[in-house]
Amino acid sequence: MGRAICMRFAAHGLVGVLDRNCDGARETVDLIGAAGGSAVALEADVADAASVDAAFERFEAMGGIPQMVVPCAGIERIGTVVDEPLEDWDLVMGVNAKGVYLTARAAFRRFVERRSGSFVAIASDAGVLGSSQYGVYCASKHAVVGLIRCLALDFGPLGIRSNVVCPYTIDTPMLDDFTARYGGEYGGQENSDFWADSVPLGRIGEADEVASVVDFLSSPAASYVNGSVYLVDGGANAGAYHR
């Protein structure tokens, strides 16, 4: 999903591709280069403040100006409060919640200086509703939604906009990782259509279908959109649904 967003952003200028996985970031940079854009890979761990700050500084040293910032790193672990390993809390909150906070911390200092900027966080439908066995993940994503709303209130008067996109199941490496880790049996289902069947559009989403919304929200066209929570879920969270 991050890569899809980078590909869209390449139309606007230099893209800083921040990832803990530098090989992945370099691949994205190469893809952008092949498409005629320019990008730089920035290795960093979003759960580490010094690492995030250093990545922003490296980006600026290379001539980048962070104007549209999108924290998109995410990690998914499931279980109940009774059986999920304790370490999951720190791991998931560290990337999903603290990672957005640390990214905001670095981004907004710069936004405030320039009196402009757009921040679009990627949360999840788990940022607005619960989900079986997703307690820790839901807590982390609700944290993102709450943080974004406050950023919108704090910096809206400066013309700096903060919004959050909440995707449902999207065809990404995270979904592959989930299926590999949990055997595709979440909810007692082995059926590969399990997720698609829960969506009124009848399919899981593509990464670019989220990226296109992020691109819109980051653009001047969304000039009055601030503090908004945009579900990109094919209708999955509108209410009880079955095919």
């Binding site: 919304v213 908004s228 945009y230 990109v232």
Partner: peptide, 17 residues
């Protein structure tokens, strides 16, 4: 917005936050 369906999208200058 090809995957956006059955949603409510707000455009309110942050007032609803």
């Amino acid at each position: 917005s090809s995957y956006t369906n059955a949603t409510v999208q707000t455009v309110d200058g942050g007032a609803g936050a």
